[in-house]
């Protein structure tokens, strides 16, 4: 419920696209971001992602993601300015070249991280897995592994929260303000968490096998995921976007 990849319900064009097309959109924006080398395009791609997010009603999700990403981006900028020392000095160790490469790296980080999360949040995991199997011919066991791993993220984080609450109630200082002390206290808990995760994974494997996992073929899915006209249009736009990234 608190995970960033939870499904955001809706009925927009984006929601109705084939899950594979959505992956292509994310891939196109990412590739374009990596290829782009000018500020207008880099900023433009981020704005595009945010605009799509706003259209699909997932802007709040992106905002919470940005809260994590922006501090990371700032650290990256500082590191870059420390490494790249050519060009005219600006302030202290910072040079013009450092600022340029650093800020571009920053924008790329934001531009690369957001599209995939956005597309995953407007796609149901089951649909994504089935569509990848049907359209991309991905073997089902890989698709299943992937979706199960994503599904387990919130389950494990809940488990970790519960463990930490239990330990706090015993008097372990997880409520300390010192992040390093907190990390040091958390490490020993990885073992119980790992033990319970292995148990859970094994139980899921058994449950899947007892419901015919090994009988599944590409034709098994009840819902079908055809690539229709709107998908082709969007795919064409994706190609154009990548070309634009390469050109500018």
């Amino acid at each position: 419920m608190t995970s960033v990849i939870d499904y955001v319900a809706g009925d927009t064009l984006l929601h109705r696209l084939n899950p594979v097309t959505k992956l292509a959109v994310a891939a196109a924006v990412i590739v374009a971001t990596l290829l782009a080398d000018t500020y207008p395009l880099l900023v433009g791609l981020i704005v595009l992602t945010l605009a799509i997010g706003a259209y699909a009603g997932a802007l709040r999700r992106l905002a919470s993601l940005l809260k994590v990403l922006v501090p990371l981006a700032v650290i990256m900028l500082l590191l870059q300015t420390a490494v790249v020392r050519t060009g005219a000095p600006v302030v202290a160790w910072v040079t013009t070249d450092g600022l340029v490469t650093g800020s571009k790296a920053c924008l790329r980080l934001l531009g690369v991280a957001m599209p995939l999360i956005l597309m995953l949040s407007v796609t149901k995991m089951g649909d994504l897995a089935n569509a990848c199997v049907e359209v991309l011919h991905v073997p089902y066991r890989y698709a299943f592994t992937f979706t199960t791993a994503l599904r387990f993220v919130p389950v494990f984080s809940q488990e970790m929260t519960a463990i930490m609450e239990a330990q706090t109630a015993r008097g372990v200082e997880y409520d300390t303000r010192n992040p390093f002390r907190k990390l040091q206290l958390m490490l020993p808990l990885c073992v119980p968490l790992l033990v319970s995760s292995v148990g859970k994974t094994d139980a899921t494997a058994l449950a899947a096998e007892q419901r015919g996992f090994y009988l599944r073929t590409r034709a098994s899915s009840y819902k079908r995921y055809p690539i229709v006209a709107r998908d082709w249009v969007v795919l064409a736009l994706c190609v154009a976007l990548v070309a634009l990234g390469a050109a500018l």
Binding site: Y7, K124, M125, G126, F144, T147, T148, R151, V155, G199, K200, T201, A203, T204, L206, A207, A208, Q210, R211
Partner: peptide, 14 residues
């Protein structure tokens, strides 16, 4: 069969 750990029994998110 329905096993004890109900969360682990689930294979989908919907």
């Amino acid at each position: 069969s329905v096993t004890q750990d109900i969360d682990a029994q689930m294979v989908a998110s919907v």
